[in-house]
Design a protein around this nucleic acid. Structure first.
Lengths: 191, 191
DNA sequence: TATAATATGTAGCGTATGCTACATATTTGG
DNA sequence: CCAAATATGTAGCATACGCTACATATTATA
């Protein structure tokens, strides 16, 4: 990635993408006109379209970059040292959705998923990438006795984490007065 | 609601909102310029702004109308005859997210929740309304032995249903080859 | 150093947006 | 019936959008 023979253009593209990934993580997908993106990248919109062929390419590469950063953040926050039981992994994941480090990724992922649901390109492929990335992360940390069901179990855990994220995002945790732990206890008592 | 002494303007407003609610359920929140809304309402944009004071009012009332319809649809799809055990209620709810009748509400709800998460008015209040509406629906159908935890349990069930909705919306159920039932079995086996 | 390739600024095009001004038609009520 | 209120069409404004044409500066290469 950090090759010596990157042209200046390539280096600028890379710098732009780093800044743009940070920007969309903070601002979301709603404030992404070329002029706004250019301001975030600290260049002129003219140069943005010199470095990239059009807005679609900018957004695709920016979201892929953000997805990469999400994967790295996930790895950093909870390294895959030893597997955890499902309930504990679920608790870790749900807590993540509220942590300062990870919440922006959660919000952005949901925005991407929603747009993917409407069939908007290029969100469809990015959404799939993010979901499978998160799913893999869960699988690598899930202690299980039945390997054949591991993938499905991971998907179930991911669904609960996502659902928790939606509720938090949508209602700003005002209905979670009892706290995250109490909420998660319900998961256990449900079945 | 159907008063005799509605002025023509009031009647037109009502008709518009009915059509607009249908429209946003189909098209989502991404295609909602005044001209597009006017076409959906089968009037001119000029008249749309005669009936309503501005776009913000149009969207607020339209989404409230859609939320009302969601509540009615929920009631119709599964009347509150007798309470169900959590697992069965969860299965019903998850299946709903894929049914033709209810999937549009699910997609729209997620779009609203995401925008609410960014603090965009008027989505914040509408999101809260939708979430509590769905939560109440669950509570009224949930068989429980510990009433003090009923509300939290309902929220947990809602989280799983929402998470399932996100995954379906985001990846178009390609990862659910095993089907909904197998997926739900995991919920049971997880704990 | 001359020339070609790369880089950057300025200006603006065509279109879409939310919204309004102004005129005219239609209905209503005294 | 006639004035006042209500309803509707036409046209367009100001702004924002994605993107491009054109000129000029800077750098690399021969």
């Amino acid at each position: 990635m950090l090759q010596d023979k990157m042209t200046k253009k390539d280096k600028q593209r890379d710098l732009c993408l780093a800044r743009l990934a940070d920007y969309v993580l903070k601002a979301g997908l709603g404030e992404t006109s070329l002029r706004q993106l250019a301001a975030a990248a600290e260049i002129s919109d003219r140069m943005l379209l010199y470095y990239f062929k059009n807005k679609s390419e900018i957004m695709t590469l920016t979201l892929l970059r953000a997805a990469e950063e999400m994967t790295e953040t996930l790895e950093k926050v909870l390294p895959a040292n030893q597997p955890l039981p499902a309930k504990q992994l679920l608790a870790e994941g749900a807590a993540l959705t509220q942590s300062d480090d990870f919440a922006p990724f959660m919000r952005l992922s949901l925005e991407i998923a929603v747009r993917a649901g409407r069939g908007e390109a290029p969100y469809t492929e990015v959404a799939r990438l993010i979901i499978t990335g998160f799913q893999d992360w869960i699988m690598q940390r899930l202690e299980t006795q039945d390997p054949s069901r591991k993938r499905a179990q991971a998907l179930m855990i991911l669904a609960i984490i996502d659902g928790f994220g939606v509720l938090c995002v949508g209602i700003e945790k005002s209905s979670f007065q009892d706290g995250l732990e109490a909420f998660l206890d319900e998961a256990e008592s449900l079945f």
